[in-house]
Design a protein around this nucleic acid. Structure first.
Lengths: 196, 196
DNA sequence: GTCTATAGGTGGATAGAC
DNA sequence: GTCTATCCACCTATAGAC
């Protein structure tokens, strides 16, 4: 374990910065905010992440990894495509319940001001989401669990858009429970929810 | 017309600031940016809008008015609820085609950093959107033009969420045409689009 | 790896002349 | 209503000691 990197400060910096971005946005958090919350000086942050762009890119990369690790772990335990979809929706809901926006949804709003590496990270995140969803949708339709017309790809785009938008508007309108009603309706539309 | 206010600088300031917020976000534009684009000094802006919070609140109020003026004008000319829905979706599309996010969708992402007056303006905007949509949805279902289960209110929430999210993700993923496919799917779901 | 100190720039905002 | 001049707080970033 000689080559193991310090799991200490760098990770704590990422934890704090991630929360700040998800709550306030990329252009509304500073090294000073992060340093204060972590309990170090601003200069120490620059040792781990030379510039804000580096920190931002690391945030996107880590979020991407964590998101799909969770997704793939869930997929391994959950057979039925309809159940997978419900759990996928629940992942977004659990982020919102902590008063946060999806990291990449938040950064999507800041896209015009982001360094290139972060923009590319965003594109990969959304693209990979839709690939995963396409698989679930196609399998679900074959099994007769889900129903939708035409190719699965645009339906996957539709699901990502609706969930990101539901988080965005729930936070913006000050009514977090709005998300649950929208998510329910979304699952209904794909046929993933039994009629009550 | 003696009491008519100057339609000059103040409106040009609002035009420029609106564009900057829609493209970059509330925390990524400055009085310096606006002043440079309008062709005046920063101090002049403070004469019309004492602080950034005042400018922001004026932006939300003006956007709200303009949005619903357009909506009500359209409603007066368009009888069929299904056609109204299509035009409603097209309004969002026309904003995106100018490489902008919906002003209130953009501000929704910045909600944690906004002054109270702006937050309240956002809530009113989304609430009124859903009231308008509810009317269209209920009339459309009565006429047999639209189809959906249960009360219209959650469907209205669903539509707003999907459209805001479609704009957000289209910009964030760098594929603006994504919006059109999502919008099409959305109209399909409500039954507003004939099968091709 | 963390600190102090500081640089150089930009943020929103004000005073007061014209 | 617009200008010049200025304030001070905060921003990202760097140098160099420990």
């Amino acid at each position: 374990m000689a080559t193991r990197r310090d799991p200490g400060t760098a990770n704590r910096v990422l934890d704090v910065a991630e929360r700040l971005v998800q709550v306030r946005g990329y252009n509304a958090f500073s090294y000073a905010d992060v340093a204060a919350a972590v309990g170090v000086q601003k200069a120490s942050l620059h040792h781990h992440f030379p510039g804000k762009a580096d920190l931002g890119a690391a945030l996107v990369a880590r979020y991407h990894r964590a998101f799909f690790d969770e997704l793939h772990a869930m997929t391994a335990k959950t057979r039925a495509p309809a159940a997978r979809l419900k759990r996928y929706v629940a992942v977004y809901g659990s982020v919102l319940r902590r008063n946060r926006m999806c990291l990449c949804g938040m950064l999507a709003s800041d896209v015009a001001t982001l360094p290139k590496a972060m923009r590319e990270g965003l594109q990969r995140f959304f693209a990979e989401n839709e690939i995963w969803l396409r698989g679930v949708l196609e399998e679900g339709r074959e099994r007769g669990e889900l129903r939708f017309d035409g190719p699965a790809a645009p339906v996957a785009s539709f699901i990502v858009s609706s969930l990101e938008g539901a988080m965005l508007v729930a936070r913006g309108s000050g009514k977090l429970d709005r998300f649950d009603r929208v998510a329910e309706r979304l699952l209904d539309v794909i046929g993933a929810r039994r009629r009550s």
